[in-house]
Design a protein around this nucleic acid. Sequence first.
DNA 1: GCAAAAATATTGCATAAACCATATTTTAAC
DNA 2: GTTAAAATATGGTTTATGCAATATTTTTGC
Lengths: 228, 228
Amino acid sequence: MSAETCNLSSCFLCANCIPAWRELIAVKKETTHFKKGELIFKEGDKVNGIFFLYSGAVKVHKQWVDQKELIIRFTRQGDILGHRGLAAGDLYPVSATALIASEACFISNAFLETILQADHTFTYRLMQLYSSELQKAEMRMRNLALMEVKGRIAETLLKLLDVFGIDAEGYMTVPVTRQDIAAYAGTTYETVFKFLKTLTTDKIISADGKSIKINAENKLRKIVKNAK
Amino acid sequence: MSAETCNLSSCFLCANCIPAWRELIAVKKETTHFKKGELIFKEGDKVNGIFFLYSGAVKVHKQWVDQKELIIRFTRQGDILGHRGLAAGDLYPVSATALIASEACFISNAFLETILQADHTFTYRLMQLYSSELQKAEMRMRNLALMEVKGRIAETLLKLLDVFGIDAEGYMTVPVTRQDIAAYAGTTYETVFKFLKTLTTDKIISADGKSIKINAENKLRKIVKNAK
DNA sequence: GCAAAAATATTGCATAAACCATATTTTAAC
DNA sequence: GTTAAAATATGGTTTATGCAATATTTTTGC
């Protein structure tokens, strides 16, 4: 179970807990597999535990009336999923969906509590993680509220680059739909489509169907800076 | 120093630490006073410690180019200020400004670290607090991105009611300017002005100059719900 | 108590971006 | 492999909001 799917070092839990715990973690954790497009957990579901993403790519999103949704963040290998619900309530406040085939270690609430009680350094690190996530959330809040759409779309492209990286030819490794770009930028598909077209015309990006390649990162950053 | 300004029980620190610590806290803390409109700390300043708001009302805000700002949250007695910077960097990512005369206990970084290392329950509670703040931040992110302006303004009024409460005649206890309402809702003064006027015409609120009174809370909630 | 600076009041206009409609292509499901 | 369902492509219309302008009132600092 452990050898193929978890090297006991790359996820937040293994990287930050007391080494001695890893043996027990190897026994207690369950490895879970998710297909592309599969729901990992759903807003409103009861929180049973926490996921540590071992491989793949996941979007964390939150609904609003009438099919609308905002993508809160994109996560990659090593990231935590479902930690928001941990201590603050018993229902997930967000949903998580696999963007590509993904694997995660699932740790039950009860076992996590045990770790938190026994390993104070881990608790401290988790608190630090939350603190930095909070900072990111505040930054994003400000951008969603005050930055104009073009800047938010440019920002989304840069974020995807940062989180998922690029392959040998410079194309983004994880195929994200334009609808997802819109959902992260807090806008509509049509607006994304139109703006990506002008970006392509200006050679700032190359959009070959679904795959996107960023040619001029600095120009995207300039768009973000100048987005009013 | 302690008796007049801090009862050693109402702030997050005193309420959640091991009782034995309170004596030391009483010695180590510094009581700080802020006048209406005074800056408590500024985005980009070096983080020296953490504030526990003892009395008054404070806005936490974040800048964007060209004088624009978003109010991240309103805080009242008992709340923590400046905790974002604690573990995640050495510069404040936000500013804090007193809305009315306010008092806060200041705890230096060094002493806070001591508490965190010695009192694991406190660390755990602080982690829980961050977790719930994160949930709130995500909710707000979604609302700022997807809810239309009228809903966001209505939401702001409800938030002010929730955080600061009302006096005997039903008026909000803390005078918040329309510009601040706009800054929280992520919109402009003019839009707030126009919408508050229709709310007044519809008798949902009474706006007597600066003081605002909410007459029909349920109608405001309905506006939030239906805001697209 | 006066001057300067915010905050408020008000309106009209410009426009960015959502919404609508529809056709085509790609992806997923059985 | 066929069909259904997403996702994409693209234009035209509408409208919610931001922006500019200007006048008045309130607050604040010295």
